[in-house]
């Protein structure tokens, strides 16, 4: 058995999801090779080499893969996939974009967003917005899998293994990168933050989201939002936590002015401790909260900032 993991990186820096996907790969068993494909990603490859459990690193450092577009990245993965029993990537927007394309090219059914490895063929994954957990067994000779990173701990460190430079892959003739609007933030990323404070429709407008800053500063927290808040234009889409946004599982999740639609709960109910602040005592968010505070968020937030 041997596993190929597709590393995730941004601006040349390895993303924390990769060490979590490596944990899933180690649990499957056998050698774990990691592909780092991108442009100016030698440093990311060196980071991967030092993650415990990694057998070897394959580096494709080429301008063709600068933006990791799905079409030629999938072709590259297929080129390198021979001999591997499992191909894994994070269920991030990058992994979700590339891996089903890989699976179809290899003529394999993909298993999406696993949250546990039962054995090398059998995995658990949430379905119906997390209202059910399916145990599925892949009958494929080669398994193509995306991993919900928040369900696995990050692998530790090791003395670095070797990094092999490859010159595989080709240019992309089907799609072309035009531009990116990256959200700049000093705060930790939602999917990696130990503490998250999220606002919902109850925040009333985008300006009021600034009220979350004070608490977030004190706790070193990332700031998230419900779909209602994103749809209303209060905050950008990359802040959305939920079934179709980001799936998070921090140590502490503070939901402020969020009613708790099942689609939102699907994105955060695996958090260790959940706090809900809402003035409606009937809000469904209280059914999953460890600590509920029925109060007006505009009174609570300044008080909470003071108390921390």
């Amino acid at each position: 058995m041997s596993v190929l993991v597709i590393a995730e990186h941004e601006n040349g820096v390895l993303k924390p999801e990769t060490a979590k996907v490596i944990t899933a790969a180690v649990k499957i068993g056998g050698d774990v090779d990691v592909l780092v494909a991108g442009s100016n990603v030698a440093a990311a490859a060196d980071s991967v080499a030092g993650i415990a459990g990694v057998t070897s690193v394959k580096l494709v450092d080429d301008a063709n893969f600068e933006h990791q577009l799905a079409e030629n990245t999938a072709d590259l993965v297929v080129e390198l996939a021979g001999g591997y029993s499992h191909i894994l990537a994070s269920a991030s927007t990058t992994g979700k974009n590339i891996l089903p394309r890989v699976a179809a090219l290899l003529d394999k059914s993909q298993i999406s967003e696993i949250i546990d490895v039962v054995d090398a063929d059998t995995f658990k994954r949430p379905i119906y917005a997390g209202n059910a957990i399916a145990t599925v067994k892949s009958l494929e000779s080669q398994k193509v899998i995306t991993v919900r990173a928040s369900a696995f701990d990050a692998a530790g460190e090791q003395g670095p293994v070797s990094v092999e430079s490859l010159s595989n892959g080709a240019a992309n003739s089907l799609s072309r990168f035009v531009g990116v609007e990256q959200t700049e933030s000093e705060r930790p990323e939602l999917t990696a933050a130990p503490v998250i404070i999220s606002g919902g429709r109850g925040m009333q407008n985008g300006d009021n989201f600034a009220l979350l800053n004070g608490v977030a500063d004190k706790l070193g927290a990332a700031i998230g939002a419900s779909r209602a808040a994103v749809d209303a234009g209060f905050v950008p889409n990359d802040m959305q936590v939920g079934q179709t946004g980001k799936i998070v599982a921090p140590d502490l999740y503070i939901a402020v002015g969020i009613s708790g639609a099942i689609q939102h709960l699907a994105g955060m109910k695996d958090s260790k401790v959940i706090v809900a602040i809402n003035k409606d005592p009937e809000a469904p968010i209280f059914q999953v909260a460890d600590y509920g505070l029925v109060a007006d968020l505009f009174d609570v937030l300044p008080e909470l900032e003071q108390a921390l």
Binding site: I111, I127, A132, I133, S138, K269, V288, A289, G292
Partner: peptide, 29 residues
């Protein structure tokens, strides 16, 4: 190509408590 072995309810969260004030919340956290 994939066999559905079984389907389970997700782990239920324990029922939480309603706190009365910010102070109590911070103390409990």
């Amino acid at each position: 190509r994939v066999e559905l072995v079984r389907v389970d309810e997700p782990a239920k969260r324990e029922a939480g408590v309603i706190v009365e004030s910010v102070e109590e919340l911070v103390t409990k956290l």
